[in-house]
Amino acid sequence: MRQSCPTRVPPAIPMPFQNIDRTDCFIVQEERHTEQEIMQAAALWNAHGPDLFLRRGSIEILETQLGALLPAGTKALAEDALNLVRRYQRLSGTAEIRFRLEKVRHDSCRRFHVDHVPLRLLCTYTGPGVQWKYADSETIYETPAGWITLLKGQLYPGWSTKGAVLHRSPPISDRPVPVTRLLLTLDHPDACGMGRQ
């Protein structure tokens, strides 16, 4: 028997990613208690890595390009991100993936929205995670750092507004202590203008 979709249960209960193919399921979250080695690597990336690493390609290409610029001590972060790429590829069936690893120090996207993609995978390594809510509700959930969030976008086959889940970046500019979010986003290769180069 198949497990129910997590969109109508508390977000603390992780569900397998394959539930995303259900017509009534718009979000799947997986709880993770990220290893200390990965968290230390994320902190080092924040200190020494580029503000934005944005590429499209196969897993092999992404691994080569990411490996070419890894700051010292960040290998565990790269390995974790590439493992998520492999999981995303199995779900999406795409040969190439748009890979975005970004330091976010501002309110990057404050409005709740649905992405113009088939599927989007998000993982915030440092700082607060993605916020989300049902389209017909005002209750806002904030995802803990390290958790994996898989969201259906408007281009997912059979997507409809009924039961849809909206999301946004958490506002961070008004926090008393400056915050740097390290956010991994995985998408279809043509997402957000990433046309073939």
Results as ranks from 00 to 15, higher is better:
Pro6Ser: 07
Thr7Cys: 15
Thr7Val: 12
Val9Tyr: 13
Ala12Glu: 15
Ile13Lys: 11
Ile13Thr: 14
Pro14Gln: 08
Phe17Lys: 09
Gln18Gly: 13
Ile20Cys: 03
Thr23Lys: 12
Asp24Phe: 02
Cys25Gly: 00
Val28Asn: 00
Glu30Phe: 05
Thr34Asn: 07
Glu35Asp: 07
Ala42Met: 03
Ala47Phe: 06
Asp51Trp: 05
Phe53Leu: 15
Phe53Met: 14
Leu54Cys: 12
Leu54Gly: 10
Leu54Lys: 09
Leu54Met: 09
Ile61His: 15
Leu62Ile: 04
Gln65Arg: 15
Gln65Ser: 14
Leu66Tyr: 04
Leu66Val: 07
Gly67Arg: 13
Ala76Met: 10
Asp80Gln: 10
Asp80Val: 03
Leu91Asn: 01
Gly93His: 04
Ala95Gln: 12
Glu96Asp: 13
Ile97Tyr: 02
Arg98Met: 07
Arg105Thr: 15
Arg105Ile: 06
Arg105Asp: 06
Phe112Lys: 00
Val114Met: 01
Val114Lys: 01
Asp115Gly: 02
Pro118Arg: 06
Pro118Trp: 03
Tyr125Glu: 03
Gln131Gly: 05
Trp132Phe: 14
Tyr134Ala: 05
Ala135Gly: 12
Asp136Gly: 12
Thr139Lys: 08
Tyr141Gln: 07
Glu142Phe: 02
Glu142Trp: 00
Gly146Glu: 01
Leu151Pro: 00
Gln154Cys: 13
Leu155Lys: 09
Leu155Ser: 08
Pro157Glu: 01
Pro157Asp: 03
Thr161Gly: 15
Lys162Met: 10
Gly163Ala: 06
Val165Ala: 07
Val165Asn: 07
Arg168Phe: 04
Ile172Tyr: 02
Asp174Arg: 07
Arg175Asp: 11
Leu183Asp: 03
Leu183His: 06
Leu183Asn: 11
Asp187Gln: 03
His188Tyr: 09
Asp190Met: 05
Gly195Ser: 13
